[in-house]
């Protein structure tokens, strides 16, 4: 085991970046999912749904800033290759996130006649942001392949991620609400799960076929034996989730947090499979994390900040979630 900072530091930062992306897709995933589910909700339900994510969405989106920030500061060479290649979807995502974020605030401050417009913008922004993120993930996984096959694969991942966000958004609503809305969220989550599962299977089949590198990575002995656990555990989680949903809503609101936790587990495993397919590349087939990393001195300076500040961030984030724990009520400033 070597302790060369030029090896250790890029590894640490790749890990941190992975964790930030995972935190983002789980946390802002449920915000975006709630936005997507706006399409299937009436006005009263929408107000409660927004109240369920209102105090959190801003901090949740910050994980995207951290993830892209870590790519920017720790792997500037990769940042300069990945982002220009994904120029259009990045632009779509950014404009969608702008729409989503401001619509959130506007819908509560405008008069009733124009509120539906901002509801629409909120829903549309959430959907296009999710599609764009999934598309980028797909194209990136294939090594920034922008051929017709790459674009199709990107769209497939885009749809799958949108369904996953809708599912985790529904899980959050199950956790944060009760009554008719909770029952509706259970139904919506089951529908979204079907698409999520189909999408994940399609990706797991298409990725190794489309990319010989991923094929070699996934189907190499002896790692393959351990790796087989990944889809097996994921399938088990899906089955458990399906069983739980069949029993919800339960008396005394038991198990209402379970769908969210299981869904977060599915996200984590899916993400782990993809991350394993990439390592040690930060730009697939072109640039390893070691070649793309900033100078060790600069990474060291950042790491000091991360070690000191990250525990505090996690601490006060948990505090904020606890303050707004329990079922969602009307959001009010006073």
């Amino acid at each position: 085991m070597s302790f060369d900072p030029a090896i250790i530091l890029p590894l640490i930062f790749a890990g941190l970046m992975g964790l930030s992306i995972l935190a983002y897709v789980i946390l802002d995933g449920f915000d975006l999912g709630v936005g997507i589910l706006f399409a299937a909700a009436d006005d009263t339900e929408r107000d409660i749904m927004v109240a369920a994510i209102g105090p959190f969405w801003d901090a949740n989106e910050t994980w995207l800033v951290l993830a892209s920030g870590l790519l920017l500061v720790a792997f500037p060479a990769a940042h300069g290759i990945v982002l220009p290649a994904l120029y259009i979807p990045v632009t779509v995502m950014l404009i969608s996130l702008i729409l989503r974020g401001v619509a959130f605030d506007f819908r509560a401050k405008v008069g009733l006649p124009v509120k539906p417009r901002w509801n629409f913008a909120f829903c549309l922004g959430s959907i296009t942001a999710s599609l764009a993120q999934g598309y980028m993930l797909g194209v990136y996984a294939l090594g920034l392949d922008q051929s017709a096959a790459g674009i199709l694969f990107g769209l497939l991942v885009g749809l799958c991620l949108t369904a996953s966000y809708a599912a985790i958004g529904a899980a959050w609503i199950i956790y944060k609400t009760g009554g008719a809305l909770q029952r509706k969220a259970v139904l919506l989550m089951r529908r979204a799960l079907v698409f999520t599962a189909l999408g994940m299977v399609a990706i797991a089949l298409a990725a190794p076929l489309a990319s010989p590198r991923i094929f070699a990575r996934w189907f190499a002995l002896p790692e393959m034996i351990l790796l087989t656990l990944l889809p097996l555990v994921t399938a088990a989680l899906f089955a458990a989730l399906w069983a739980v949903l069949a029993r919800l809503p339960a008396a005394n609101d038991r198990y209402s947090a379970l769908p969210f936790m299981l869904m977060a587990g599915i996200f984590t495993l899916g993400f782990a499979g993809l991350a394993y397919a990439f390592y040690p590349y930060v730009v697939p087939e072109r640039l390893t994390i070691f070649a793309a990393a900033s100078a060790p001195e600069s990474l060291g300076i950042i790491l000091v900040g991360v070690i000191v500040v990250l525990p505090a961030i996690i601490g006060y984030s948990i505090f904020a979630y606890r303050v707004f724990g329990g079922k969602a009520h009307d959001l009010r400033y006073d």
């Binding site: 800033v65 870590l70 920017l72 500061v73 720790a74 500037p76 900033s294 100078a295 600069s298 950042i302």
Partner: peptide
């Protein structure tokens, strides 16, 4: 990037 990176990272953190 070696200079702008840490400054931006500290802003986020």
């Amino acid at each position: 990037g070696n200079i702008a990176g840490p400054l931006l990272a500290y802003e986020i953190l």
